[in-house]
Amino acid sequence: MDKVVFLLFVLSLGVSSQPITDSQRLFSIAVSRVQHLHLLAQRLFGDFESSLQIEEQRQLNKIFLQDFCNSDYIISPIDKHETQRSSVLKLLSISYRLIESWEFPSRSLNGGSAQRYQISQKLSELMRGVQLLIKANQDGAEIFSDGVVPQLAPYGNYYQSLGEDESLRRSYELLACFKKDMHKVETYLTVAKCRLSPEANCTL
């Protein structure tokens, strides 16, 4: 069953349908996918920010720096040194949690419906790919050995009826958090992929 899912994942990315057993190849696909998602996140955030007045940008950025993203409840490395010390399985597991946490909120990102659909599809493909990488690197270990995976609420009261100012803040926070989390996943998967190449320099 895993081989079938893996093949579908590869085909969905336009890669050769020849059987692939090298996890380095799957890592490359996953990194490429999250890089694309990160670029989309940056573009959406940039477009939204450019539609704001300068004072609005300043105030929203100030508020965001004092606020938290839902995914901050997912325990992850606090800096690049801890990231480099983390095991491949740990980096993959954290990446999976971060991707999964956006499965529902991504449908409400500011932007066109076509972009939201594209992001949703890419997140699903990436999640399946990372899940396969976890299984390949698991070797009998528990995927989430540090406790129960937290069930994150869909960004608080984002879906409630909000005033204009509050709605603006929520949209800003959602886009900023998505960009932040895709950057995290890109970093973790890149470091994990690098670990498969002993001669590579995996410094950040």
Rank of each mutant, 00 (worst) to 15 (best):
R85C: 15
R85M: 10
S50F: 03
L37N: 02
Q57N: 15
L37D: 05
S32E: 14
V31M: 06
V88S: 08
Q53P: 00
F27V: 02
L39V: 12
Q84S: 11
N70D: 14
F27D: 01
G46C: 03
F27A: 01
H36R: 07
P77I: 09
V31C: 15
Q84C: 03
L44C: 13
I78H: 11
L39Y: 02
L60G: 00
S86L: 04
H38F: 14
S28V: 03
Y73A: 12
L60E: 04
I29G: 05
S32C: 06
E56T: 02
D67E: 10
S28C: 09
Q35D: 09
R85S: 10
I54S: 14
T83Q: 02
F48A: 05
Q66V: 06
R85E: 06
N61T: 02
I74Y: 08
D72N: 11
F64M: 09
D72C: 07
L89G: 05
L52C: 00
F27N: 05
L44Y: 00
C69T: 14
S87V: 04
K90W: 07
N61E: 06
Q57R: 15
S23Y: 03
S71H: 00
D47R: 10
Q59F: 05
Q59L: 10
P77D: 13
L65T: 12
R43P: 01
L60I: 02
D67P: 01
Q57S: 05
D22E: 13
A30W: 01
F68N: 06
E49Y: 03
F45N: 15
S23K: 14
S32F: 03
Q35V: 03
